[in-house]
Design a protein around this nucleic acid. Structure first.
Lengths: 152, 152
DNA sequence: TGTCGTTTGGTAATAATTGTCAAGAAGAAA
DNA sequence: TTTCTTCTTGACAATTATTACCAAACGACA
């Protein structure tokens, strides 16, 4: 995890430089915060984290910086059925288990799923850059909770 | 398409009855509207459609009814990276091409993709109910547009 | 260190969604 | 079909999520 963060920091500096973006404290801390989490936080959740570390950060800045990260490829917005954006600093191909009960999003890494044979002929109408599979269902925490409620 | 709508209407009546829900004009029209579209509209887009057909519908009602449809299985919220919910009356397994430029969501039906071999051992920690693949990239309309802009 | 263009913070505005509650319709019973 | 009960809706207020704006502050480079 630490190694990942270190690499991410180096990537951050390189990508910012390449894109002519200043290395500000805000960008640095927001990236660190996002990269250290595996729970695909919303912008507001990132803000809550960051607010403890930088006195007086603005919510606006967090939203703006996250958007910047997406545009330069340092982060991704992940697909989810909620009506708010969730961010992920891991931009490599992987998939998600999302609990329809509590909304938690769990990463799923799987080599076979990363190398699907795509249906022939699509590329004519749509240039596919990447894909991600969203598995919907019930996480183990919610399974237990739901069973408990039924047994009452 | 008409046949699909007819089936959907029958399903609508059956499912409402089974769940003890009244067959109101609002629910009927909202379902018809959603089922007749293939573009995965947001709640507001559905509202715009429905507002023409029922005098004085409330936006609240549209949001509420769509949520009801999801809870009784007549519709799904589809996963997308935007910060608003999109709905789909087709609850059978299928996948989506979403354009990262304009946001359009195109259906993709493919037998192979519908029968993926899931990684072993997951089911212990997460009960998978279904899955859907989101392909991200550029739709043909945007490809053309982006090329045009470059050539200027 | 000074300059200059980039970024940020604060606030207001907008978009998306939800909560509340009285009035109005559906469905069952008579 | 009329009445009654309960489910739904509509109007409006309240939240939540996100964006726009602009003056002040900061980072990069000479």
């Amino acid at each position: 995890m630490l190694a990942i963060c270190k690499n991410k920091t180096r990537e951050f500096e390189a990508v910012c430089k390449r894109n002519g973006l200043a290395l500000t404290i805000q960008r640095r801390v927001i990236l660190e915060c996002l990269a250290s989490r595996i729970d695909h936080p919303t912008a507001d959740q990132v803000y809550d984290d960051v607010a403890d570390k930088i006195k007086g950060v603005s919510r606006t800045t967090v939203y703006r910086v996250l958007e910047t990260f997406v545009s330069i490829g340092l982060a991704k917005k992940i697909s989810n059925p909620e009506s708010k954006a969730r961010f992920d600093a891991d931009t490599t191909r992987h998939h998600h288990l999302t609990c329809t009960n509590c909304g938690v999003v769990i990463d799923l890494f799987d080599n076979d799923l990363n190398n699907l044979r795509l249906p022939a002929g699509i590329e004519k109408d749509f240039e596919i850059a990447d894909y991600s599979i969203t598995f919907t269902g019930t996480c183990s925490a919610c399974s237990g909770r739901l069973l408990d409620e039924k047994s009452k």
